[in-house]
């Protein structure tokens, strides 16, 4: 009790730390591959330790928004920053872990699960070789996603779900501060999906910021703390409970969508 009186005004402290802790910050971002914008008038910030889900119908610009945040695309208007630096110049890859929707990766290349997970350590070693410590982290990541027995399997010979686990392990091995996942559970069996979201929750508890791009609304409403609902522009941005009660979903997706019926 007494500590409360001696401590600084909590709102002030919060405000200050928030300023330092902006992991992602977009202001008035607009972007289009052609003349017509795919996303426009986007302003949002994600603070350290948040668990944010971006939802929206197909073609709503979710993946584009993610690419803008990560600096893979440059906004036509407005600014995008990550860890306080403009996204397109930010190059400390060790701070970002990334899991793609159907891994964009090469389809026929001979490469083992372990070799893929080792890539997570590449940003940490630069032009050097992986140390024993790096290899231990790789082993731990494989263990965490239950893929130890598959470590020496060729990635291209795995099922979709197994392959996705390998990519999640790669993101874990990168020991990033921010984990960005673009529909990570597509093709993963239902049982593993549940365990996977538990894993994300525990990572989030340990202080990692999580940004989830998701089509599966039930997963989002069960797990994320904050929802950004997108369809070219932001329809809703706030706590998950409020999102469930709001009509943002119907407006963004059209009237047909419900929380139960959209699971794929």
């Amino acid at each position: 009790m007494s500590t409360m009186t001696t401590a600084r005004d909590p709102t002030e402290e919060q405000a200050e730390s928030k300023l330092d802790d902006a992991v992602v910050e977009l202001s008035n971002v607009e972007f289009g591959y052609t003349a017509s914008p795919v996303v426009e008038d986007i302003s949002l910030r994600i603070d350290s330790g948040e668990y944010v889900a971006v939802v929206g119908p197909n073609g709503s610009g979710k993946s584009t928004l993610m690419k803008l945040m990560l600096g893979l695309l440059r906004p036509d208007e407005g600014t995008a920053a990550i860890f306080g630096e403009p996204s397109h110049v930010f190059d400390d890859g060790a701070r970002i872990g990334y899991v793609a929707q159907h891994a964009s990766a090469s389809k026929e290349m001979p490469i083992t699960v372990r070799e893929v997970v080792r890539m997570g350590r590449f940003p940490h070693v630069g032009f050097g070789r992986l140390s024993a410590e790096d290899n231990r982290i790789v082993d731990d990541a494989l263990e965490t996603v239950g893929m130890t027995a598959f470590a020496n399997r060729r990635v291209t010979k795995l099922s979709g779900g197994q392959r996705q686990r390998a990519f999640i392990a790669r993101a874990l091995a990168s020991e990033a501060d921010l984990l960005v996942l673009d529909e990570p559970t597509v093709g993963v069996d239902a049982e593993s999906v549940e365990a996977f979201y538990d894993l994300l929750a525990s990572l989030n508890e340990s202080g990692i910021t999580i940004l989830l791009i998701e089509h599966d609304l039930s997963a989002v409403t069960e797990h994320a703390d904050r929802v950004v609902c997108l369809n070219r522009e932001i329809y809703f941005d706030g706590p998950t409970e409020e999102f469930v009660e709001s009509d943002a979903l119907a407006r963004a997706f059209g009237t047909a969508a419900t929380f139960v019926g959209t699971k794929r």
């Binding site: 982290i137 731990d140 996603v145 538990d198």
Partner: peptide, 14 residues
């Protein structure tokens, strides 16, 4: 091989 379970308790970042 047997596919292991995803282990939420023992995360590398924890």
């Amino acid at each position: 091989p047997e596919l292991g379970s995803i282990d939420a308790g023992d995360t590398p970042g924890s």
